[in-house]
Amino acid sequence: MSQNGDATLITLLLQDKQVEGLQFLKDDQWFRAPIIPEALLINVGDQAEILSNGILKSPVYRVVINPDTERISLAAFCMPESDKEIEPLESLVNESTPDCTRR
């Protein structure tokens, strides 16, 4: 079992229709991501958190293995080129909300 966040802008996930496995950490407690058939789960990544100056939060998640049943999910990762520097949108930085990357 691994736990991490995504360095992406967003991740699009089509979950297995029957086997659960994805969990998100909130308030030091793990919550399972429900299976919603034919729905995409959209996960905000670290880059979206930076661009939004912390308004959007990149969650910590883990994938739990089911020892009895295989799970097949499809993920698409959306992100700018790796050599590009990103920072919060200028309109989201002010005295009351300073640049989240400089804290």
Rank of each mutant, 00 (worst) to 15 (best):
S52G: 07
G54V: 05
P34K: 08
V64K: 04
F24S: 04
V44Q: 08
I10T: 02
V19C: 09
N43P: 02
L51V: 11
N4H: 15
G5N: 11
Q18V: 13
N66L: 05
V44Y: 10
L13R: 12
D28Y: 05
G5F: 06
Q15L: 06
L51T: 03
K26Y: 02
L40S: 06
Q15F: 03
P37C: 11
T69Q: 15
I42F: 07
V63I: 14
L12R: 07
Q47G: 01
I35L: 15
D46T: 03
L56P: 00
Y61D: 00
S52I: 02
L9G: 11
I65V: 14
L51R: 02
L40C: 07
S52A: 12
N66H: 06
T8R: 01
Q18F: 12
E38K: 12
L12I: 09
G45K: 01
N4E: 14
Q3T: 04
G54P: 07
S2Q: 09
Q23C: 05
L41S: 14
S2V: 05
A48H: 09
R62T: 01
I42H: 04
I65F: 05
T8L: 04
Y61G: 01
P37G: 13
Q18E: 15
F24W: 06
T69W: 05
N43D: 03
D6R: 09
R32K: 15
A39G: 09
P67F: 09
F31H: 15
A33R: 09
L56V: 00
D27K: 10
K17S: 15
P67G: 13
L22W: 00
E38C: 09
Q47R: 14
V64I: 14
P67Y: 07
L40K: 10
P59I: 00
A33H: 11
A7D: 13
T8M: 02
K17H: 14
Q47L: 14
L14H: 14
N66K: 09
L51K: 03
D68K: 08
L13V: 12
R62N: 08
V44A: 15
T8E: 12
L25G: 01
G21M: 04
N4L: 11
L13I: 12
L41K: 09
P67N: 12
D28S: 11
G45V: 01
N53M: 12
Q18T: 13
N4K: 05
N66W: 05
R32S: 15
L40M: 15
L13S: 12
L41F: 10
T8V: 01
S52C: 06
L22D: 03
G45I: 04
Q15H: 02
K57V: 12
A39D: 10
D6G: 06
R32F: 07
I35A: 08
G54W: 02
I65Y: 03
G54R: 08
Y61I: 01
Q29Y: 10
G54C: 12
D46F: 00
S58F: 03
L9E: 04
T11E: 08
G5W: 04
F24E: 01
P37E: 14
L51Q: 02
K17I: 07
R32N: 11
D6Q: 09
K26N: 00
Q29G: 00
Q29L: 09
I55C: 00
E38D: 11
D16R: 15
I50R: 07
I42D: 10
G5E: 03
Q3R: 11
V63D: 00
Y61K: 02
D16V: 14
A7T: 05
L9V: 13
V63R: 03
P59R: 00
